[in-house]
C-alpha cells in the first residue's frame, strides 16, 4: 500500500465510530394547543336521502382547557335528519361502541350543525350524519368541521367536495304474481292491474312466477311488449305495452341494494356504460342475488333491479331498485 493512503485511515475511523453511536431515546412530546382530525366513514355513491357519515376528532392537553363547542358547516343546507352526535364513543372490551354524552343535542340551522359541550372534556370524537337533500342532487357538497376550546383557540378541518349522485333508490318492493306485479321504473313502484291501467304509459316490467314442467321459467321479469311466450297466463291491462330492454346479471350484489357483506357499489357511471345493443325484453329463471339492468322504452331511465329474495310458495319477489335519469 502506498504511503499516501495512510492519511485516509483516521477519516475512516471517525465515520465508523460515528455511525455506531447509539441514539438517545427521548419521550415523544405531544402536540400542544387544540387539534382536530376527520375521516369519512361511508363508502360508495352519495345518494339523496341517505346519510354521509363522518367521525370528527378534537383534542387539547387537559391543562390547556376544555372543548366548548363543535360545529359542521355544509355548502348545501342538509335535509331533515342531519345531526352531529352529542356523544363521544369508545369501543368496549366486547367490541361494542359505547357512547358518553358530552354535550347537548345538536342544533341544525340552515347550513350549520352545532353541538355545545356540557361536560368538562378535552378529547372527543363526534360522528356527523349529513342527510343528503334533494337540492344537492348532481352537485358537490363540502364540509368545514370546526371546534372551539375554553382557552379561545379554534381549529377547523375541511372535507370534500363529495359528488352527490343523480340516481334514486328504492328498497324492498314486493311484487306478487297476478296481484301487484306491474313495475314502474318512472314511479319506482309496483302496481296492481287496476292502478297499472291508470298508469299504462309508466309500466315497464311485469313480474310473474311459473313452475312449468320441462323448462326453467320460475321467477321472471318481462316487459309488457315481450312475446306472449314469456308472459304466459298474463292478460295485460289496456295500454300496457312498453318494450323495455334488459340485461341479466348474477351476483352483482350492490351494497346499497343488497345490504350484504359485499363491497360493490353501482354508481352513476355504471348506468352510462351498460350496453343494451340487442338486449332482450325479458329475463326468466331469476333467483335471489340475481338482477337485471333495465332501460325504459323511451330511453329516459336506466335502472338496476336487484332481487333480494324470491318466494316460490307465495309467488312473490322482493326487489330493490337504483334508477338513473339518462335524459
Amino acid at each position: 500500500m502506498q504511503r499516501k493512503y495512510f492519511s485516509l485511515i483516521p477519516l475512516i475511523l471517525i465515520i465508523f465510530f460515528n455511525s455506531c453511536k447509539n441514539d438517545e431515546y427521548t419521550v415523544p412530546v405531544g402536540k400542544t394547543g387544540l387539534n382536530n382530525d376527520c375521516i369519512k366513514r361511508t363508502l360508495g355513491p352519495n345518494i339523496v336521502g341517505n346519510n354521509i357519515e363522518f367521525a370528527y376528532a378534537i383534542a387539547l392537553p387537559a391543562k390547556e382547557g376544555k372543548i366548548i363547542s363543535a360545529q359542521v358547516e355544509a355548502t348545501i343546507p342538509a335535509a331533515t335528519g342531519t345531526y352531529l352526535e352529542n356523544r363521544s364513543f369508545y369501543t368496549s372490551a366486547s367490541g361494542v361502541d359505547v357512547g358518553i354524552t358530552v354535550g347537548s343535542p345538536s342544533v341544525t340551522t340552515d347550513t350549520k350543525t352545532v353541538v355545545t359541550f356540557t361536560k368538562d372534556t378535552c378529547a372527543s370524537t363526534l360522528r356527523f350524519f349529513y342527510t343528503i337533500p334533494e337540492a344537492a342532487r348532481g352537485k358537490s357538497v363540502s364540509f368545514t368541521f370546526s371546534a372551539t376550546a375554553s382557552n379561545g383557540q379554534t381549529v377547523s378541518y375541511s372535507m370534500g367536495p363529495y359528488a352527490i349522485t343523480k340516481m334514486d333508490m328504492k328498497l324492498d318492493l314486493v311484487a306478487t304474481d297476478n296481484k301487484a306485479c306491474y313495475i314502474s321504473i318512472a314511479d319506482m313502484a309496483i302496481y296492481d292491474a287496476a292502478t297499472a291501467a291508470a298508469n299504462a304509459d309508466k309500466i315497464d316490467l311485469v313480474y310473474l312466477y311459473r313452475a312449468i314442467t320441462g323448462i326453467t321459467f320460475n321467477h321472471a321479469l318481462a316487459s309488457p311488449g315481450a312475446s306472449a311466450e314469456y308472459l304466459p297466463g298474463i292478460t295485460l291491462p289496456a295500454g300496457v305495452n312498453k318494450v323495455t330492454k334488459m340485461s341479466k346479471t348474477w351476483a352483482l350484489n350492490d351494497f346499497n341494494l343488497a345490504r350484504l357483506q359485499y363491497g360493490i357499489y353501482i354508481d352513476d357511471v355504471d348506468f352510462q356504460v351498460v350496453d343494451f345493443t340487442n338486449a332482450p325484453n325479458f329475463v326468466i329463471n331469476l333467483k335471489a342475488q340475481a338482477g337485471t339492468w333495465v332501460e325504459t322504452a323511451d330511453g329516459k331511465y336506466r335502472a338496476y333491479v336487484y332481487i333480494n329474495a324470491v318466494n316460490n310458495a307465495a309467488s312473490s319477489m322482493t326487489i330493490s331498485i337504483k334508477r338513473y335519469l339518462m335524459k
Partner: peptide, 9 residues
Amino acid sequence: VFYGTDLKN
C-alpha cells in the same frame, strides 16, 4: 340451452 336463453348475447 335453457328455454328463454338470450341467444343474441
